[in-house]
Amino acid sequence: MNMVDARDRGGPRQPLLTVEGLRKYFPLRNALGTVSAHVQAVDDISFTVAKGETLGVVGESGCGKSTTARLLMHLIERDAGSLLLDGDPVGSGGVSVRDLRRQVQMVFQDSYASLNPRHTAVAEIAFGLRVIGHRRAEAEAQARQTLRLVGLDPDQFAGRYPHEMSGGQRQRVNIARGLALNPRLLILDEAVSALDKSVQAQVLNLIEELKQRLNLTYLFISHDLNVVHYVSDRVLVMYLGKIVEIGPVDEIWRNAAHPYTRALFSSRLSMNPADRVVAPPLTGDPPSPVNPPSGCRFRTRCALAEPICAAVEPSLLAAGADAAHAAACHAVQAGSGHSLAGGMTHAA
């Protein structure tokens, strides 16, 4: 498993991906075509993805998790911020977008829409290989191998069109397409969310197995907390374009610091008819990312909100005993001015 990757430059301690101050605002145009407002989809987020880990990203719709994935893939242009791939800046002078896409690949949520309805499985997988210069025969031979890798018998599935496969089989083809270019980082954007539970479990097992086998690093985006808990090493919680909490998965599950993370946890369905949820942890819907609240974006739904939360935007600081655990909440940051926070000394 610990084979040395020739592309590894900075050694195991250098993050595979470093994201600094990433920002994307989508302009909203009125009827006359002038920009009237911005959707603040992703607003100044920074994080790292370590080599070989699975970083889970959770959050509700509109929190910016899918936009983040597309920004990392350069499918949309970022407004601000920088990306470092194994220490090298992506963009001018550093890693080209083309090279980035050989090392970072993505699996989309909708297994049907993300496959070309007129392409067979093998043609779809071979496409990327042909783009990077393989001949058709060579690319297709390799694509058949990749099909086998994701548990589909090439003799049976190579010639199938998307409508001739089930959702689980299609998602395996999608994963195979992502893997065909032999990436180091695979972004899984709600990749198992649309699957039936019985099939979801199969694909989750496959994803785990592939990670071990191919030395992969995952960015696993999902709204399903149980699934994220199952696959992730670390978790990043997003709310309205901001990171509200990040840390090792067990630490967050035991000691969630941010009120939003805690509310997400108590919104989970009980799976036990004798122990049903009695009161909803939050009221209302997440506000629109068009004009997000000032200060802390969660304050409008937060039970702990105080004037300081509206005035000052909390920054992502260490929370709790684990140094890798950080939260953006005044209530847990000593010296923030929040009545629940401690004195002037910063907690370790």
Binding site: V97, R102, M106, D110, A113, V131, N174
Partner: peptide
């Protein structure tokens, strides 16, 4: 605007 075109772009084509 379908995902498969985006996926094709993601291969660097």
């Amino acid at each position: 605007n379908q995902d498969f075109v985006e996926a094709a772009r993601a291969t660097g084509a």
